[in-house]
């Protein structure tokens, strides 16, 4: 009986989830689905911003405040962190643990630099009279970019945790999936920033 069942099992292994081309590890599919929910989350925040950005009351407008060169540099820094995380995952797939660690360090560092740019920007805007309480534009701007910043900060925290885990315990199959899943999240956070940069900063400057 056992030999026959073994054959059945092998024969059927590829039938259900594989027939749809879904990733076998639940965490990978789970993260993609989570990102779909995140899209709805940021779509709602961005929609709220677009609906409110003209509501400046007596406060400053986006066109007066936005410093495009500064934000462009921050954008380039965040986008390059997508490259470094790809190189980290590629190194991991070559079983080059040292390389992976170096690229992940660099990714976290770029994330932190981006957050510092954002902190500096918030500080400047605050001194130009834009706060959460000034106007609906202020509320929507700080909430949208603040939630994006929190996502970046959480990503940095996640990268550092995985880095320390790999430094202490090395890497195994389970941990490679953890790193891969984190990299998907990191790319998503970058892609959202591209949308925010376009719709908030670029469009805000021209209008």
């Amino acid at each position: 009986m056992s030999a026959q069942s073994e054959t059945t099992r092998v024969a059927l292994e590829h039938e259900t989830s594989q027939e749809l081309g879904l990733p076998k590890d639940h965490r990978i599919l789970g993260l993609w689905i989570f990102l779909a929910g995140e899209c709805a989350f940021f779509a709602s925040l961005i929609g709220a911003y677009l609906g409110l950005h003209t509501g400046v009351a007596h406060g400053p407008t986006g066109a007066q405040l936005f410093d495009l060169p500064l934000t462009t540099v921050a954008t380039l820094i965040l986008l390059s962190s997508s490259l470094t995380v790809v190189l980290g995952v590629a190194a991991m797939q070559r079983r080059d643990v040292r390389g992976m660690q170096i690229w992940l360090w660099l990714t976290a560092l770029l994330g932190i630099i981006f957050l510092e740019f954002q902190g500096y920007e918030f500080y400047t805007f605050y001194h130009h009279g834009l706060t959460l309480q000034t106007s609906a534009f202020g509320s929507a701007f700080f909430t949208l970019t603040g939630f994006h910043g929190l996502h970046v900060a959480f990503g940095v925290f996640w990268i550092l945790l995985l880095l320390f885990q790999s430094l202490r315990h090395g890497i195994n199959e389970d941990r490679t999936t953890k790193v891969f899943v984190m990299s998907l999240y990191w790319h998503f956070v970058d892609v959202v920033w591209v949308v925010i940069f376009t719709l908030v900063y670029l469009a805000g400057k021209v209008s």
Binding site: F41, A48, G55, S135
Partner: peptide
């Protein structure tokens, strides 16, 4: 996610005095 965002916006208004739903402030 949309209701979560909505609840966050109202929480910001009520706890931190943001102005999402404050019509005079836009």
């Amino acid at each position: 996610p949309p209701i979560t965002v909505n609840l966050i916006l109202q929480m910001m208004d009520r706890l931190f005095h943001a102005t999402f739903f404050n019509i005079p402030l836009g």
